[in-house]
């Protein structure tokens, strides 16, 4: 999903980097606050980062005949809020950029924006909406993770369409072209990511219900239990 190195015009590269900056600062601040107030949650934060590490390393074949990978950012966004995932997602992206030539330094800002800002924001939004309408927690987590994954790639398509509008059809035609590639490829992967996130949530619920309670995930003794 990452935009390849050098494949964003300078103006766009700088623009997306600047747009990312405030979220990054807020995110660092959020992590600092969370780890000083509740140091016992550090390990859980590590698990959220590790989950993103694993999922974004898995290149999975899709029905369109292309491969892509999930993002894994929803878990941490639901547990710790969207801002916390900004620096964590950025670390994963930096790792892939420097060691794997996957993504790029010049496109890092844009990639952080789609994967580490938009994805977690969507996840968090869906999670709170689901809670509001008292949707089953498992279903809520599934939707939050799937849609965060999908919207990450829609954002990438948006960014590319903005930088490379179609000569005749303009932005929209270009957006359709990119999202046909990215978003369609991503649909089965997004569903997989939804399931995987619910699985790890079930496991956390089993082994770490106390920590989840500290994060107010299960209010009024609400459980994933059916």
């Amino acid at each position: 999903m990452h935009i390849m190195e050098g494949f964003l015009p300078v103006k766009h590269a700088v623009g997306w980097s600047l747009a990312t900056l405030p979220f990054m600062l807020l995110g660092l601040n959020a992590i600092k606050k969370q780890t000083t107030n509740k140091p016992e949650l550090k390990m859980l934060l590590g698990v959220s980062a590790a989950f993103t590490f694993v999922l974004s390393a898995l290149k999975i074949p899709s029905v369109t005949g292309s491969c892509s990978h999930p993002t894994g950012t929803a878990l941490g966004a639901v547990l710790f809020g969207p801002l916390t995932m900004v620096p964590i997602g950025a670390i994963v992206l930096l790792f892939q950029t420097l060691l794997l030539a996957h993504g790029g330094l010049t496109t890092l800002g844009a990639n952080i924006f789609s994967m580490a800002i938009m994805g977690p924001l969507v996840a968090s939004l869906i999670y709170h909406l689901g809670k509001l309408v008292k949707l089953h927690l498992g279903v809520t987590i599934f939707l939050a993770a799937s849609l965060a994954d999908l919207l990450t790639y829609v954002t990438t398509s948006f960014q590319l369409a903005l930088a490379f509008p179609d000569a005749s059809g303009g932005f929209l035609t270009s957006f359709i072209k990119f999202s046909t590639l990215f978003a369609l490829t991503q649909i089965p992967l997004a569903i997989s990511e939804g399931f995987l996130t619910v699985i790890i949530f079930n496991m956390l619920n089993r082994y770490n219900s106390r920590e989840l309670a500290a994060l107010k995930i299960f209010e009024k003794k609400e459980c994933l239990r059916q």
């Binding site: 390849m4 494949f7 292309s66 996957h102 790029g104 590639l181």
Partner: peptide, 26 residues
Amino acid sequence: FTGADDKATLIIKELSPEYRPWFSPI
């Protein structure tokens, strides 16, 4: 089953053939 990213660069080349990436991976 090549990467979707690689295919995206093909779309970019089709949309603006004159675009040249201005930075390459370190």
